[in-house]
């Protein structure tokens, strides 16, 4: 710090009001851009799981489709038979679903939006084909657990490994095997 004092004071530039505001504006814009980029990454990068469901309902308002092919965006299409449910993982919020029914050969393509902070949505294809709204519904963990009790659980939902609570000491003497 003493060295800083010893240095001859830098010539003070007289900054007039105009440049000062201009600087402030530029900095503000840069900050906004930075935050904007972060928000953009959240919107484009958010990952959602879409469950595609082909089941009857109890009240008989719609019935499972007897064989169809469904694809989300440009992903590989897969076949669904009554009672099937599968998932697709997507990034971003706007997506299209393409359905081609085997029985009558109808092809339907619809686009839908996943709410930004919803991790999982469920699409009921029979509902969608019948035009019953809403055919896209958020799917919560609680629902999932509820359903898991009545049927085999969906695999791949909890993927974080469990670990002991205490972290390792920060001392250097016990080197981990080098992460290769």
């Amino acid at each position: 710090m003493s060295a800083a004092k010893a240095r001859p004071a830098a010539p003070l530039k007289t900054v007039d009001a105009a440049t000062r505001t201009r600087r402030l504006v530029i900095r503000g814009v840069l900050l906004a851009l930075y935050l904007g980029l972060m928000v953009l990454m959240i919107f484009t990068g958010r990952r959602h799981t879409i469950l595609i469901d082909n089941k009857d309902t109890t009240d008989g308002s719609y019935e499972a489709i007897n064989g169809m092919e469904v694809s989300i965006d440009r992903q590989e299409p897969s076949e669904y038979w009554p009672g099937d449910r599968d998932k697709a993982i997507v990034q971003g919020q706007r997506h299209t679903i393409k359905v081609s029914v085997f029985d009558d050969g109808t092809e339907v393509a619809k686009s839908f939006t996943v709410p930004l902070w919803t991790d999982i949505v469920i699409i009921s294809v029979p509902k969608m084909l019948k035009g019953i709204e809403p055919w896209v519904e958020p799917f919560t963990m609680a629902q999932q657990i509820e359903e898991a009790q009545s049927q085999p659980a969906l695999e791949g939902m909890s993927y974080q490994s469990d670990g002991p609570a205490a972290p390792a000491a920060g001392e250097p003497g016990a080197p981990q095997p080098p992460s290769p």
């Binding site: 000491a169 001392e171 250097p172 003497g173 016990a174 080197p175």
Partner: peptide, 9 residues
């Protein structure tokens, strides 16, 4: 083995 390391600090 590696035990002496953490004794130093």
């Amino acid at each position: 083995y590696t035990a002496p390391g953490p004794m130093v600090f």
